[in-house]
Nucleic acid binder design. Structure first.
Lengths: 230, 230
DNA sequence: CGGAAATAATGATAATGATCAGGTTTCAAA
DNA sequence: TTTGAAACCTGATCATTATCATTATTTCCG
């Protein structure tokens, strides 16, 4: 059995590619290019015209946008199974976000032709893409409300719980996705120093434990109460 | 020529319904129900299960979400031509937002069956819906960045420009969409008092003129510079 | 290993915005 | 036209968060 064919790739089960027919998937597989992206490297930059989408097989990418004050707001973290760049390809616009590898990544680049033609022919596939985008939109709405109505402390508590729920923990209970304090600050939209200060406070209160850059949630209940505003 | 048929409704030119076939549109038109919604009334509430979507023929609706601290964050303003509730119907979830009339509205309720069946059969229509949602998602990302990286003053300046660009001005140059200070505060995610204070400052600096609730942009250049961070 | 660079931490201070506590104006209904 | 409610406005104060400065710690690479 041929290695590295989309037909045999489990990852596609998690995204809209699962709604493609055998033939369509074969065409995608013939057109795709596997790529390794090192930690810190960019998949693409804000304002770039995307010639296709990236399907994430491994690793995590941050999608961020540079603001006028020079800070990089992280809008989403994309991992295994997620497709990056769909929005720009569908809307035929340059990307509004940059995508940067948070750790070493394993991705497949799929040229947009292979996607777009199917979008116009296979309503099941188009609907699947639509469903995923509807989900992203809901999440974005929730983020807007959190950003504007919650304090930095609440947002950091929430971000920690999000990291646990979406990326899990290793054998020792540490968060599997290791982010720098700066990245966490950029997720919640605050200054790096403020983020560090609040994490120190959480540590001193026993909500979390740290070991170098690694972090472990010690009192989920307390963090959740804080995030919810109690 | 029959009045009030979707086939003859100009409004559909602005939304995904334009990609429907004659027959599909006829089915929608047979199933739809016209409704008048008075200022302040709700089209639907957060958490409600939507049995269809609303196509806006006139008036403006605010889409908002109640936060834990009791404030109502406005996520989007929808007007003539826009379809409300698509996201929830596509994702088959309860609504994450409430929709409330900002002024008297004229809408058509379209039962979801009329939409969903077409979504599974007509890829052009599905793709159109997808394009609109991609656009909404981009806007949502921009809002996230603004919320987290700009000051309240910048956000208010931006909101005023947004109101001018999206809803226009009347003959005397006043913003066509009249929002209460509280609503403006809920758009930019701040306290009503802070919003009032900043609008007073804008007025005293000659950036805007007010006449009762009505507001006119007097120095667009200055507002723009402020919003961009100069 | 050793040293440079990146990352993390902490303190002091200033700016921003929220909250509370009054006022005043506006507007619509009786 | 009165009147009551809602909307608007202003001041004082306090909490939160950003910024600047400096030091500690970790990480990574020759």
């Amino acid at each position: 059995m041929e290695e590295n064919r989309c037909e045999n790739c489990i990852v596609r089960k998690f995204n809209a590619l699962r709604a493609m027919s055998k033939e369509e998937l074969k065409a995608v597989s013939d057109a795709k290019v596997s790529k390794q992206v090192k930690k810190g490297e960019a998949l693409f930059e804000e304002g770039e015209k995307l010639n296709g989408v990236y399907c994430v097989r491994g690793g995590v990418s941050k999608l961020s946008k540079l603001s006028a004050n020079g800070k990089d707001q992280i809008v989403k973290l994309a991992s295994r199974g997620e497709v990056i760049g769909q929005r720009s390809v569908v809307a035929e616009e340059t990307s509004n976000l940059s995508a940067t590898a948070v750790n070493d990544m394993d991705v497949c680049f799929i040229p947009k032709e292979a996607i777009v033609s199917t979008l116009h022919k296979n309503p099941d596939f188009t609907f699947e893409v639509l469903r995923h985008m509807a989900h992203d939109l809901r999440e974005a709405d929730d983020v807007i409300v959190n950003m504007s109505q919650k304090t930095v402390k609440q947002r950091i508590a929430e971000a920690l719980l999000y990291l646990k729920n979406n990326f899990g923990e290793d054998q020792e209970g540490y968060l599997a996705l290791v982010l720098s304090r700066e990245d966490i600050a950029n997720v919640v939209g605050t200054a790096t120093e403020s983020c560090i200060r609040i994490l120190s406070e959480f540590r001193s209160k026993g909500f979390i434990k740290t070991s170098g850059k690694r972090m472990r949630i010690a009192d989920e209940r307390k963090l959740r109460d804080l995030a919810e505003g109690f």
